[in-house]
Design a protein around this nucleic acid. Structure first.
Lengths: 149, 149
DNA sequence: GCCTGATTGCAACAGGGTTGCATTTGCGGC
DNA sequence: GCCGCAAATGCAACCCTGTTGCAATCAGGC
């Protein structure tokens, strides 16, 4: 896990040939502090609370676009069809294994022991990610597991 | 594969304790003819072309809701975050293998040869579905594959 | 310190999906 | 076959997520 000092973040931006701007630093810092992938809305909220005040909606989208484009961040869809953003360095640690999506509470659990198989694709197709999603009920929500209802 | 005559479809609705209405029959028929999961927009188009004329946008959403609720249909998210609807009976045939989600056009392609592994879960967890999603660009959207741009 | 292209902020828009409400319709009971 | 009522339909209006156009501002190479 790298150090997420402002200087480190600025260096990351420079290394990615992207201009170092205050909004980008703030978004990076926010993402680096997040425990999990955040939606645009969640980021907007957190930025509004932090010092420096709110960030324009559209600017936030474009900052995120630039982070995606330079490879520092990635996005996935959550169960509602909303994009969630996270740092590539964090995501990398989750790429190899499967995830359990609880259909009741929406929680996500890592299944480290379930590893993604190699994709076998028809010619012309290009794979970027392979994701195994197991859906069902987690410990807390299954009648077997514990606190049902 | 069951017979998709109007009578059969009506019987399915009755069996699911749902009123038999013209919109529901038309939507069911359309879904039963579809080769793959359709978006709301695609369904709307097809219904507008068929005899009986267009169906109200909202009505279509509510018809789909009722089909979801009674278990006749299911929905999944495509790579763009748009819902795609399909008959449960058809979906069952796709449960075992992986699917390719094109990140550009949202299209879904079956990867029959990629089979879902058995889920190994922590105790207390209950699995209902295991889904392997390969994301990337399909033949039509990848620069390698064909009609790029 | 200056210049220029990239970035920001604002306004307006687009698509997918939902809600409220009046009207119509399926269908069980008579 | 007719009646009544809950369920379903259609229309209008709305919300949320994400995008586009454009003028003003700023980063950073010179």
């Amino acid at each position: 896990m790298p150090e997420f000092t402002p200087d480190f973040l600025a260096a990351q931006l420079r290394a990615a040939s992207v201009k170092v701007t205050r909004p980008r630093l703030r978004v990076l810092a926010c993402l680096s502090r997040a425990a999990s992938a955040l939606t645009h809305g969640e980021l907007e909220e957190r930025l509004a609370e932090g010092e420096g005040g709110g960030l324009d909606r559209v600017t936030l989208y474009r900052v995120l676009d630039s982070l995606l484009e330079c490879g520092l961040a990635e996005r996935t869809l959550d169960a509602r069809g909303v994009y969630r953003f996270l740092l590539s360095s964090i995501r990398a640690a989750h790429a190899a294994h499967a995830h359990f999506h609880c259909q009741r509470c929406g929680g996500i659990t890592c299944l480290e022991q379930m590893v993604a198989p190699v994709a076998t694709l028809p010619t012309g197709f290009v794979a970027r990610q392979v994701e195994i999603e197991v859906r069902g009920l987690c410990v807390n929500c299954s009648p077997v597991g514990g606190a049902a209802r």
